[in-house]
Amino acid sequence: MTNDHRVAVPGPAASGVGSLPGGDQGAALRLVFDGLGGAPGLPYLPELPARGVGADMTGRTAGNLLVDIAIDLAPSGWRVADAPGRDQGRAVSHLRRDLDVLEELTQDYTGPLKLQAVGPWTLAATVELKHGDKVLADRGACRDMAESLAEGLSRHLAEVRRRVPGATSLVLQLDEPALPGVLRGTVPTASGFGRLRSVDEPLARDLLRRVIETAAPDGHVVVHCCAPGVPLTLLRDAGASAISLDWSLLRTRQDEQLAELIEAGTVLYAGAVPSLEPASAVPPNYQRIVDEILALRRIGLPARQIAGAVVVTPSCGLSGASPQWAARAQRLCLDAARALADVE
């Protein structure tokens, strides 16, 4: 499949994965836009899981973006329900307030904006059916949930466009940390005593493609996976215009795939900045980050081409970091992107 790469922010640029520490959305948004609100930055709507129920990754997406599917929180996690409950109401309340603050603080903003949501396979691997195992155990339920998610994402993007009219383009990030496990058959059952059967790559690709094409047919979609074994070719063939990954997990056996991605115009969101403050007495600096990214020259492409295909990010979300490190990590991303812009 030939992908139409409509990339809102070509590299080199800087962004974040999505989550930040703390519970003050106004402070989080100011941190993001103060640091990434101009070129070469790609600001995003922060997620603040420290706020508790409904602010977590799964609850935020399932509670707000599934159309005609209600959820509730059971002792084992989020579960499909007959009707929305109090816990789903908390998820809705969190996102409504976040969008209100976003609208208020971006009155004069002009530029791209990134939004994050859980992708269909990670959602299926973390949400349970009403009276059974995880949604992943039922292929029909997986399709139904994916279709519901796609419609909800489309509505969400439309609402953000109305609220932030200065957004020149919206980037949709689908978080799929569970996808490698879905493909390998290592996702545990709801009881935890077994493993759910693996999903064939063609099915995984096609369902993800339907979500991408329905939710953002004319937009920009990056798929984030910070787990080992990111299925690079599958994500490209599913229609992702960019792939976000933990740079430290790249293996030389993936070099051929990486070269093909870059030459085809796929942008790599390089998670090269640690998401937690390193214990080393020597703190990382932006030049070290640049060197780690340009080590990809081993694939045989010129440094300038690699630099132009990269958006620098932390290796994963920053919710577990201190506020000081979250701010420092964002500055490192921006400084590294500016240095990459000067690469010859």
Score class of each variant (00 low, 15 high):
T58E: 08
H94D: 07
I71M: 01
L66F: 10
A74M: 08
R96H: 15
V67T: 11
G89S: 06
M57H: 12
D87M: 13
G63T: 05
A62L: 07
L65P: 00
V80W: 07
M57K: 09
L65F: 13
G77K: 06
A81G: 00
G63D: 04
R96M: 11
L73N: 01
L65M: 10
H94N: 12
L65H: 12
R86E: 10
D68F: 10
A70R: 09
S76H: 13
R60Q: 10
G85R: 07
D82I: 01
S76W: 14
S76L: 12
R97W: 15
P84R: 05
L73H: 08
D68I: 07
L66T: 06
A74Q: 09
H94K: 06
A70V: 07
R79K: 05
G77N: 04
A83D: 12
P84W: 03
Q88F: 03
Q88S: 02
D72E: 14
D82W: 04
R96S: 14
W78Q: 00
D82M: 04
A91L: 08
D72A: 15
A83Q: 11
R90H: 13
P75I: 03
V80G: 00
D72N: 08
D98P: 12
M57N: 07
R96N: 14
A70M: 07
H94T: 08
D68N: 14
G85H: 06
A91H: 13
L73K: 11
T58H: 08
T58I: 15
A83F: 07
G77A: 05
P75G: 01
Q88P: 01
N64E: 01
P75L: 03
G85Y: 02
R96A: 15
R60S: 05
G77Y: 01
R97N: 13
G59C: 08
A91S: 15
L66G: 02
R79T: 06
P84N: 04
M57W: 09
A81R: 06
G89R: 10
P84A: 09
I69P: 03
L65Q: 11
S93M: 12
L65W: 14
Q88V: 00
L95A: 14
N64K: 05
G77R: 04
A83V: 10
L95V: 15
R86W: 06
D87C: 12
D82N: 11
N64D: 01
T58Y: 07
R60F: 05
R79L: 00
G85C: 08
I69E: 13
R96D: 15
R90F: 07
R79Q: 12
S76C: 01
S76E: 15
P84S: 07
A62V: 10
G63Q: 02
T58C: 10
G63A: 06
N64H: 05
A83G: 08
D68A: 12
V92F: 02
L66I: 05
W78N: 00
D68Q: 13
A74H: 12
A74N: 04
A62W: 14
I69T: 10
A81D: 01
A74P: 00
A70E: 06
N64Y: 10
Q88W: 02
V67E: 11
Q88E: 15
H94R: 13
D82R: 13
R96L: 13
H94P: 00
L73V: 06
G77H: 01
P75A: 02
A81M: 06
H94G: 03
V80S: 00
R90Y: 09
A91F: 14
A62P: 02
